[in-house]
């Protein structure tokens, strides 16, 4: 599958993968998309006097790809560690696959694959022996499965080499292989692109797309917002431990009734629009006119301008990108809470 990205454009690939995920009859027949696979309830964690996570309520549904975003120190990793039973919440609880993870960790966590921050591996063992060490812990995984996951992450050729000789990207992929060992229902990936060079990020992106296409429920925290926007169904944004927004990606990037118009001389149009009660937010952005429509429809905006003798060359719905939204919702470092 990795060859695909070198032949197809990323956009085309993403489109087909998303199509496969959402339209496959087999998939639709077996999934109950409304089931919460991971949910947090009033989840809080306090380190001394410093709150790391505050009263967090999240819900990740079966079959979706859920993005978990926030600036550094926002509480993402702390939340993920609580979801995996690595640290105890100060208040609230986490349900994974319908059960309280603190009380039933041995029942639910074997059904979850996780990669938390940088890949943690045994450097003196080969890639295959690393997998074997984790496989034993899981109660035994057939050798054929080791071959399968090594193939999946593209490490079959280097499986006999010691992990200390691996690049960061290879370690990250081996970490994903460990997470996939027993074909988990839910994958939790914390900053899977952390520390990777551009080539490593591309490798990781391709791998994630494969996983998404295979129908896993994926909970991913990442700083690569363009990737999150392409891959995720829904996102939650947290800042200083608090949830500031949880919505579908489509809702977040929706136009909200604004349009981008291109024309030779936009200034008269801008003055005209600003004089209207519905057009006060009109503005120029990189020489393009951004404005609302009197009715919410683009053709009425074009008609309104045309009635005043102003003709637009093109008009498009204005879509915001996730990065723009993320920056608007999260305060810069040092700002008061």
């Amino acid at each position: 599958m990795l060859w695909v990205s070198t032949v197809w454009t990323p956009e085309l690939l993403t489109f087909f993968l998303r199509l496969a995920r959402h339209k496959s009859p087999a998939r639709g027949a077996t999934l109950n998309v409304n089931t919460a696979v991971l949910s947090t309830h009033g989840l809080s964690k306090q380190y001394g006097s410093r709150p790391a996570v505050r009263d967090l309520d999240l819900e990740v549904r079966r079959g979706e790809v859920f993005g978990f975003l926030g600036p550094n120190g926002a509480g993402k990793t702390t939340t993920i560690r609580m979801a995996l039973g690595l640290i105890r919440p100060t208040a609230g609880w986490v349900e994974v696959l319908g059960r309280d993870v603190q009380r039933h960790r041995a029942d639910v966590l074997p059904r979850v694959g996780a990669l938390v921050e940088t890949p943690a591996l045994y450097p003196y063992l080969s890639g295959r022996s690393n997998l074997r060490a984790f496989a034993h812990m899981l109660g035994g995984v057939p050798d054929a499965r080791l071959d399968e996951v090594l193939d999946l992450v593209g490490l079959a050729d280097r499986q006999r080499d010691r992990v200390r000789t691996y690049s960061m990207g290879m370690k990250q992929r081996l970490g994903v292989a460990v997470a996939l060992l027993n074909d988990p229902e839910l994958l939790i990936l914390d900053e899977p692109a952390n520390g990777l060079d551009p080539a490593g990020i591309v490798e990781m992106r391709d791998l994630l797309r494969q996983l998404v296409a295979s129908g896993k429920t994926v909970f991913i925290s990442s700083h690569v917002l363009a990737e999150v926007q392409q891959i995720c169904d829904r996102v939650a944004i947290i800042d200083r431990g608090e949830l500031v927004r949880e919505a579908t990606v489509a809702d977040l990037v929706a136009s909200h009734g604004e349009f981008v118009l291109r024309m030779e001389n936009p200034e008269p149009a801008l003055a005209l629009l600003r004089a209207q009660p519905w057009g006060s937010a009109a503005r120029l952005d990189d020489g393009e006119l951004v404005a609302a429509s009197p009715t919410g429809r683009g053709r009425d905006l074009v008609r309104f301008l045309a009635q005043s003798g102003i003709w637009a060359d093109t008009i498009d719905e204005r879509q915001r990108n996730l990065e723009e939204i993320f920056l608007s919702l999260t305060a810069p470092i040092g700002a008061g809470s």
Binding site: R27, A133, L138, G140, R145, E148, N182, L211, S214
Partner: peptide
């Protein structure tokens, strides 16, 4: 739904295994 050709029941034991954990430690 799966990245595995093997049956899910083979790959998902009910709970982690103590003898398996000992084997893992001996391997290390």
């Amino acid at each position: 739904m799966s990245t595995a050709a093997l049956p899910v029941a083979v790959l998902r034991p009910a709970r982690p295994s103590f003898p398996g954990a000992v084997r893992s430690e001996l391997l290390k």
